[in-house]
Write a protein that binds this DNA or RNA. Structure first.
Ligand SMILES: [Mn+2]
Ligand SMILES: [Mn+2]
Ligand SMILES: [Zn+2]
Ligand SMILES: [Zn+2]
Lengths: 139, 139
DNA sequence: TTTAATTTTGTACTAATTACAATTTTAAAA
DNA sequence: TTTTAAAATTGTAATTAGTACAAAATTAAA
């Protein structure tokens, strides 16, 4: 995703493209991970020494409101964030703590209504032992 | 669930039935909700004035280890707890904040393995506007 | 009754997040 | 270009959920 594309996307969403905002957004494009606020801050502050952690919080909240990102509640002590692209679910390994994207479809993900309630977001995560950790244990 | 049944269950699970532990457990049986640590503490401290919040934390951690309770990560700022009975998913209304149990089955809930990873827990929650809040909005 | 193990309690601490006012930046108006 | 107002960023302080830990209390075995 090029700079122009980002600026175009921001314009569509009504987001003013400050340097900090663009850098936070680029973090998600360049690192397809599920970072915490702290991870983003620690990474960007190297490039933007004046960066404030508050700006990172503000920016992430804005991006979530504008549906560019979603919050992932999968850790007990901190919120992680995910770039919204294709719908997917998550798998967290309780051994190595890694979080994997799982592109497996399920009736729940398409569900727009349940028991009379209007459904707007779907959050699914699985916990267990990942492929790699299973192999390590066998050895 | 009677006192004897609780004591029997605790014995099976290897939990010593201290007064505090039994009271915390009874909270879940008598209130089929999804309480936070603070809600449990505030409720029980009326009956047990010497109760420490640390005991509530310790007890809930123990109950989770022993698979009597599960942690629900659905709020950004606090963990909620759920009595483990029938498998179910949750719906949270973003208007009134209420959390509903949804007993709707889905292939994901039965999934024991995905992409080579061994699945041990399934967590599914939906966000939206609940039936009641939809009605209020229409008026 | 002694003793050791377990549980509970209270306090201090940590760390994520929020509140908020001051400063800086941006962009429009004059 | 200069003035002005709005928006964004920053830094600090406050809040709050959760944890660490040692002392006190309880329990149960020796
Ligand atoms: Mn993801
Ligand atoms: Mn439930
Ligand atoms: Zn792993
Ligand atoms: Zn509602």
């Amino acid at each position: 995703m090029k700079k122009e594309e980002i600026l175009k996307l921001f314009k569509e969403k009504g987001i003013k493209p400050s340097f900090q905002r663009v850098e936070v957004f680029k973090y998600f494009i360049e690192n397809k991970t599920h970072p915490s606020v702290d991870e983003i801050f620690k990474h960007l502050v190297k490039k933007i020494p004046t960066l404030s952690i508050t700006t990172v919080y503000n920016t992430l909240k804005l991006f979530c409101q504008k549906k560019l990102l979603s919050e992932i509640l999968i850790e007990e002590n901190q919120i992680k964030f995910d770039f919204i692209e294709k719908p997917h679910i998550h798998f967290k390994c309780k051994k190595c703590e890694k979080i994997y994207d799982i592109f497996k479809m399920c009736s729940i993900i398409k569900c727009k209504e349940v028991n009379g309630h209007k459904v707007e977001e779907h959050h699914i995560y699985l916990i267990g032992t990942c492929k790699e950790c299973l192999l390590k244990t066998k050895k």
